[in-house]
Design a protein around this nucleic acid. Structure first.
Lengths: 347, 347
DNA sequence: CACCGCCAGCGAACCGGTTCGCTGGACGAC
DNA sequence: GTCGTCCAGCGAACCGGTTCGCTGGCGGTG
C-alpha cells in the first residue's frame, strides 16, 4: 500500500506538504497541488484509516446500536437501519452495525476504544441500560425512541400521544362508539420502549373525553402467537367496530385473522394502524395508518448526531426531545360503523 | 482517555511490558501481570482501536456489503445481515455495514483504507462489478451467492439446481402434472444473482424427465406489483395444480392472491416455496418450502472469512464454491391434485 | 566460587497520518 | 539598494499502540 510518504516522494515534496495539499488545511501553490494529485493518481494512494484516526481522533464512523429482541418483529427495525445507513453515507460516514444482545457493553466497547465518532441508539427502552453508558461516554449519541429519563440526551421520536388521540378522533368522527386498541404486553413494552403506553394512555383519555368506549388488549409482538391473541381479542369483544393497531406484528397478521373471521374492512370493521408506508407495502396491508416514518426518524437522528460530532467542542447546543407529528394515511379501511342491529364482530 | 502509557506508569512497568501482559504474546511474571491488570481496572483502560490498527494492520472489523436494490424485497436480506452480524460478534469481530448503491466504490474505499480485515458480499450478481475490486483488493472476501465467474473466490450458496429438482420431484410424486414456477424477470435476476434461473433450468429439466408440464412465469420481485403478476399468471394457466414459488415477494403476496381467487392450499392448489423458516413466520406463510437458510449461509461465510483473515498469510487454502443442500420443510400445503374434472384454478 | 545460559523487562523504533513552529526566498515599500 | 513582511514548504514531534533486540539479574552447574 502506498503511504503519504510515497506520495510526497513521487511529488518531490515533504510529507507535511502532501498532507496539506490533500486536506486543504493550509494554502499551497497550484503547481505543488498538481504534482501531489498526480502522484496520488499514479500510486493509487488511499489514506490509512487507522493512522488518520490515531492522529485526528476521528474515524468518520457512526455506531448503530440496534436491539433485536427475541420476541420482536424485526422487519420494522430494518427500515430504521436503512434510514440511518443511507443518511450517514450521504454525510460521509460509515456505519458500524452492532446487534449484540448486551447493548450496554457493546456501547462501552465501541466508544471507549474510539472506534466511532458517535452513536445512534435504536429501540430505546423506558429504562435502558445503554443510557448510563452513553452519558458517561466521550462520544455523542442520539436516540430514536423516548426513554423514561431523556435528560441530557438528544432524542427523536414520533409523537405517540398525539398519534393515540388522532386514531381515536378519526374513528369517533366516523361514528364509531366501540373501539379496541391492540398493543403489546407491558413487560415487552417496558423493554421495547414506552411508546405503546404513551399512545394507549392518550387514546384512552381522548376516548373518555369523547364518550367513546375504548378497550385495550395486549398481543404478542411477534408471529405466530400474535394471531391467536388477535382472535381471542375479537372473540372477547364482539361489539367492537373500530380497531386501533399499534403493534406491527399484529398489523401484519390482521389480514389473516379477519379473513378467518370472514370480516372485511371497512364493511365489518374499521381499522387504523400505526406503521410505515414501506411496511404496508411489504405486508400488503390495506389499512389506513399513522405513518411511523422510520426513515425520517433515522435521518433526523443522524443529522443531529453529525451536527454534534462536527460542532466545535466548546459551545453546546441544547439537548432535547424532538417529536415528529403523526400523519394519517388513508387507505380506505375506515368508514361508518355497521348498524348496531345485533350483528357481532365474531359473526 | 487512559493510554497504555498511563497503565504502565501506574503499574510501574514499561509500556512494552504492559503491552506484553495484555496481549499475552510474551511470558511475564504473575506479579507483574497482577500489577498491570490492577492498573487497567483502576484507570478503566481500553486500547485505542486506531492505534492498534495502525500498529498491527488489523482492525477486527468485517465489512458487510449488502445490496438493496430499488425493486428488491428487503426483508429477505435482513436475515442474512443478522446471521453475519451475530456470527462475526461471536468470533470477536464487529460489522461495518455498507448499503450504498455503488458497491464497487464502497468496497474499494473500505479495503484500500484498511478499515476492515475482510468483507462479506451479499446478493452477488451474475456479473458483479464488486468482484473485480475484490480480486484486486488486499483483503480477503467471501461471497454469499454464486456469480458467473467464481474463480479465485470463496463462495457459499444454496444448491439451487438441486432445489429446483426437489420442488418438482415433491409435487410430481404427489401426482401433479401441471406445474407453474414463479420466478423473477431475467433482467432482475441477472442483477440480483443467477440463482433463480439456476433453479428454473434444473426444474424444467427435471419436469421434462418426469414427463410433467412445467410452465414458468416472471413476477416482480417487490410489492405491490407482484400481486398483479401472480393474478395474471393464475389467469393465464388455469389448469395448474402445483405452484413453485422461488420469489420471496411472491410468496409473501400469495396468501392474498389465493384468497381473492377463493383458492385454498392444498385443497385447490399445492404450493412449494423457497424461503426461510423465519421468513415464513414473519409473513405467516403456511406453505411447504425449501429452507433457504440465510442465517446458516451468513454463518458459514463469516467463519470462512475469519479463517482466511487469521490464517498465516503464506499457505493458502484452496478457494471454491460450497453449496448447502436444500431441505424441504413440510407445512402441509401440498397434497394430491384436485381431480382434473374440468375444474379450473381460476374457479 | 566462578562462569554460563536463560529470560523477564526495558528502550527504541515503527506503523502512517496531522500539525505546529521555523525558515528562507520573493516581493513591496521607502 | 536595503530592509521588512509574508507565506509556502519543510522538519520534527505527536497520536497510542506493537515488536524487536538488548541487558542484567538470577539460578544452575562444574
Amino acid at each position: 500500500m502506498a503511504t503519504i510518504g510515497d506520495v510526497a516522494q513521487v511529488a518531490g515534496v515533504s510529507r507535511s506538504t502532501a498532507s496539506n495539499v490533500l486536506s486543504g488545511n493550509k494554502r499551497t501553490s497550484p503547481e505543488i497541488q498538481e504534482r501531489v494529485r498526480r502522484a496520488v493518481d499514479t500510486l493509487g494512494y488511499t489514506p490509512n484509516a487507522g493512522a488518520r484516526a490515531l492522529a485526528t481522533s476521528q474515524t468518520r464512523v457512526i455506531g448503530l446500536l440496534a436491539r433485536f429482541l427475541d420476541d420482536e418483529f424485526a422487519p420494522a427495525m430494518l427500515q430504521y437501519i436503512l434510514g440511518v445507513s443511507n443518511t450517514a453515507r450521504e454525510l460521509g460516514y460509515d456505519i458500524l452495525l452492532v446487534s449484540e444482545a448486551d447493548g450496554a457493553r457493546a456501547l462501552q466497547r465501541i466508544t471507549s476504544s474510539l472506534m466511532v465518532d458517535g452513536v445512534v441508539l435504536l429501540n430505546v427502552a423506558e429504562r435502558d441500560d445503554r443510557l448510563d453508558v452513553l452519558r458517561g461516554a466521550n462520544r455523542p449519541g442520539v436516540l430514536v425512541g423516548l426513554p423514561g429519563d431523556p435528560s441530557g440526551l438528544d432524542v427523536f421520536d414520533l409523537d405517540f400521544a398525539e398519534t393515540g388521540r388522532l386514531m381515536v378522533q378519526h374513528l369517533a368522527r366516523l361514528g364509531h362508539r366501540e373501539l379496541l386498541l391492540v398493543s403489546q404486553p407491558d413487560h415487552v413494552v417496558e423493554r421495547g420502549g414506552a411508546y405503546v403506553w404513551r399512545l394507549r394512555d392518550a387514546a384512552v383519555e381522548e376516548a373518555r373525553l369523547r364518550g367513546v368506549t375504548l378497550r385495550t388488549v395486549a398481543a404478542a409482538p411477534s408471529q405466530p402467537e400474535v394471531g391467536a391473541d388477535l382472535r381471542a381479542a375479537l372473540d372477547a369483544h364482539p361489539d367492537v367496530t373500530g380497531l386501533l393497531v399499534s403493534n406491527e406484528a399484529a398489523a401484519a397478521a390482521l389480514p389473516f385473522v379477519l379473513r378467518d373471521r370472514g370480516l372485511e374492512s371497512p364493511r365489518d370493521v374499521s381499522v387504523v394502524g400505526r406503521f410505515s408506508a414501506e411496511f404496508a407495502r411489504t405486508f400488503s396491508l390495506p389499512y389506513t395508518s399513522i405513518e411511523s416514518a422510520p426513515d425520517r426518524l433515522g435521518q433526523l437522528a443522524v443529522r443531529q448526531l453529525v451536527r454534534r460530532i462536527e460542532s466545535p467542542g466548546g459551545r453546546e447546543e441544547a439537548h432535547g426531545v424532538r417529536f415528529i407529528s403523526p400523519e394519517l394515511v388513508d387507505r380506505g379501511s375506515t368508514g361508518a360503523p355497521r348498524p348496531a342491529d345485533g350483528g357481532t364482530i365474531a359473526g
